[in-house]
């Protein structure tokens, strides 16, 4: 099965990058997060409640909604800030992309070290950095980015409410193949964040990807 793919292009100032990506990814994750499943007997379960939190951006004229899960926020924040740091770093050309990928694991390989992951939805944000000469332009752009992101959030809502494929609700034994059950308060679909920076030399990009791959393997 091919994964659905959504692509957003953003042109933002360096300091806006974190919040811009977070507003999109948090909105997506909010839609893709359930309450914790509580199984009583096989086949019967109840679902916990998901709380929500308004987040005011500091550098963008925007408020977005995310799950009230500090852990989920932490995970996402970590990924986004390492992307943003590299994007704004000296080696960077100021262009890069970050993806939020939802996947499910294949049951028959689950005893292996790393089971096969099948992505079913990929959200990509391509970020292009720009700089401003003066504070006036910067202030105007603060509003402008808010409007741009508002449009993106409208489209996320529209996409979420299409009757598209979502993994079937699993039985208790297969819960880990669909959902990330490591969070104490919420249960998002399995997801991972990847990013790449198009630097002046392609070496740094490969290097960072490799570093990330190794890090991911170790964390498993």
């Amino acid at each position: 099965m091919n994964a659905r793919s959504q692509m957003f292009d953003l042109t933002v100032e360096g300091r806006q990058a974190d919040e811009a990506v977070a507003s999109i990814f948090h909105t997506v994750l909010f839609h893709r997060t359930h309450g914790k499943f509580l199984y009583s007997t096989e086949g019967s379960y109840s679902i916990g409640t998901v709380g929500y939190t308004d987040v005011d951006c500091d550098f963008i004229d925007l408020t977005y909604v995310c799950c009230s899960s500090p852990h989920l926020d932490q995970v996402l924040k970590r990924e986004i800030s390492s992307f943003s740091e590299q994007l704004r770093g000296n080696d960077s050309s100021g262009m890069g992309q970050i993806t939020l990928e939802f996947f499910q694991r294949k049951p028959r390989t689950r005893w292996l070290f790393q089971s096969e992951c099948i992505p079913w939805e990929v959200w990509t944000v391509r970020v292009d950095l720009l700089t401003f000469a003066n504070e006036g332009e910067r202030q105007a752009y603060r509003e402008k980015v808010g409007e741009l992101l508002a449009d993106k959030i409208f489209s996320i809502a529209e996409i979420m409410n299409r009757h598209d494929y979502l993994p079937k609700m699993p039985s208790q034994s297969e819960l880990d193949l669909i959902f990330d059950t490591s969070y104490p308060d919420v249960q998002p679909y399995l997801f991972k964040v990847n990013y790449s920076i198009s630097g002046p030399s392609s070496g740094s990009s490969v290097g960072s990807t490799m570093k990330k791959l190794i890090k991911e393997t170790l964390s498993l």
């Binding site: 914790k36 998901v50 939190t53």
Partner: peptide
């Protein structure tokens, strides 16, 4: 005003639409 409602993981599905 800003709104923030907590998650209730142990709630036995008593909240409508599992949303706080």
């Amino acid at each position: 005003e800003k709104i923030s409602t907590p998650c209730k993981p142990d709630n036995q599905g008593t909240d409508w639409f599992n949303l706080n």
